[in-house]
């Protein structure tokens, strides 16, 4: 998948969190494979996926950890918060309870990650607007009050899924350039790899190939 070693200059670590069945695994699958998994089994512990993206001309490899929403794996999933540069916090717009739990997810995230971690709120399943249980305005206000970025997306149609992942990366990249994020800290969630020019061009060719074939 990745075009050999050092075809990218950064690795960003993400986590995806949220209640059981909100569509975390589907979002990840949509982002990495551009496909919707209709019968996705429940995640046990954690799963992971990667994709190389480009921000401001820099190749960045996203290493994304999709955690289980089940309460009983909380002990396992908590160890993945540490060293996450980005956290995607997902709720299901058709199930109010998943929205109500956001504050406890947010508390966990704030407690277990570092202050520079970018938190992005995703209201998933926006294709099911008829069954909507949480209004956009309400969630938007929650996001603003807590300083989170926010979109409503759909893992099924792929709507605004890219946006969520890419905007998070942009924000992280900004923090690096502002010097707010210390690359040398063990838990920053960002690794810098000196890019090798020859190989970078190789992966430049590969990236479009991948995009066209999986659509």
């Amino acid at each position: 998948m990745s075009g050999g070693p050092y075809s990218y200059s950064y690795i960003f670590k993400y986590i995806i969190i949220g209640d059981m069945g909100v569509g975390k695994s589907c979002l990840l699958h949509q982002f990495t494979e551009k496909k919707f998994m209709a019968d996705c089994p429940h995640t046990i512990g954690v799963e992971f996926g990667t994709r190389i993206i480009e921000v401001s001309g820099q190749k960045i490899k996203l290493q994304i950890w999709d955690t289980a929403g089940q309460e009983r794996f909380r002990a396992v999933t908590r160890s993945y918060y540490r060293g996450a540069a980005g956290a995607l916090m997902v709720y299901d717009i058709t199930r109010r309870s998943t929205y109500n739990h956001l504050s406890s997810w947010l508390t966990d995230t704030r407690n277990l990650t570092n202050p520079s971690t970018v938190i992005f709120l995703i209201g998933n399943k926006c294709d099911l607007d008829g069954q909507r249980d949480v209004t956009y305005e309400e969630a938007k206000q929650f996001a603003e009050e807590n300083g989170l970025m926010f979109v409503e997306a759909s893992a099924k149609t792929g709507e605004r899924v890219e946006e969520a992942f890419l905007e998070t990366a942009k924000k992280i990249f900004q923090s690096i350039q502002d010097g707010r994020l210390d690359l040398n800290a063990a838990e920053s969630g960002v690794q810098h790899k000196p890019s090798q020019t020859g190989r970078t061009t190789l992966s430049n060719d590969q990236q479009p190939n991948k995009d066209t074939c999986s659509c």
Binding site: I44, G45, V46, R72, F73, A75, V76, S79, Y80
Partner: peptide, 13 residues
């Protein structure tokens, strides 16, 4: 089964 699964999952941490 769950507790043995949890032990195995701990390996990555």
């Amino acid at each position: 089964v769950y507790s043995s699964i949890t032990e195995l999952l701990g390996m990555d941490s």
